[in-house]
Simulated assay, not measured.
Amino acid sequence: MTRILVLYYSSYGHIETMADAMAEGVRSEGVAVEVKRVPELVPEDIARTHHFKTDQTAPIATTAELPEYDAIIVGAPTRYGRLPAQMANFWDQTGGLWAKGTLIGKIGAVFTSTATQHGGQETTLFSLITNLLHHGMLIAGLPYSFQGQTRLDEVTGGSPYGATTIAGGDGSRKPSTNDLDGARFLGARVARLALKLA
């Protein structure tokens, strides 16, 4: 049976919401999906002081389980135009998998959030994609057949490199319907590709 992992890191809940939408897209194609997160590196007292969303229900992923999936969709917010330390730390532990080539040929896709429209969405997506390419994964982007990313009537996320959302400088903007539709579209696309390669 084809299985897909949505692997994410979320400080304030925006990426968690996008991860759930991504999983909805996968399920819409009848494919099994699990949503898991990488471990938090910030001490709990500091995370609470800075209002991190600490009540996330997704279980913690391990690098050892990655080979069990046919596709891995990775999401994380930007940190100065690149992936955050929590996600980098997780992928830094996959050297053994890389040495064995265990992820070669699997489907990969990415998603992110930024505070502003020009806050590094595409560079963050590329910093996530780089890890997947080094593992020999096949990258699925968000094609322009998802018309939502060409909208000009509202502030919106979306890039040919992956699904995105904009959180606002204070984190008050939640993923829009269009942002979530982009995540569902990409999740469904990854599921269809994984089925074709199964």
Rank of each mutant, 00 (worst) to 15 (best):
V6K: 03
V6P: 00
L7I: 06
S11Y: 14
Y12Q: 12
Y12H: 14
G13P: 04
H14N: 04
M18I: 06
A19Y: 09
D20F: 12
M22R: 04
M22Q: 09
A23E: 04
S28E: 11
V35D: 01
P39D: 11
P39F: 10
I46C: 09
I46R: 12
A47G: 10
A47I: 02
H51S: 13
F52E: 07
K53R: 13
T54H: 02
T57M: 09
T57N: 09
I60H: 05
A61F: 01
T63H: 05
L66K: 07
P67W: 06
D70P: 01
D70V: 04
I72W: 00
R79M: 10
R79L: 13
Y80S: 11
A85M: 11
Q86G: 07
A88L: 14
N89W: 05
D92P: 04
K100W: 06
G101M: 06
T102S: 13
L103M: 09
I104A: 15
I104T: 15
G105K: 05
K106C: 04
I107E: 09
G108W: 00
G108S: 04
V110S: 04
V110N: 03
S113V: 00
Q117C: 14
Q121K: 07
L125A: 05
F126W: 10
H134I: 08
L138E: 07
A140G: 04
Y144H: 14
Q147Y: 12
Q147V: 13
Q149Y: 08
E154K: 14
T156G: 13
S159Y: 12
P160W: 15
G162Q: 01
G162Y: 09
G169I: 12
D170K: 14
G171W: 01
S176P: 10
T177H: 13
G187T: 06
R189V: 07
R189T: 09
A191L: 02
L193Q: 11
L195A: 12
L195D: 04
A198V: 07
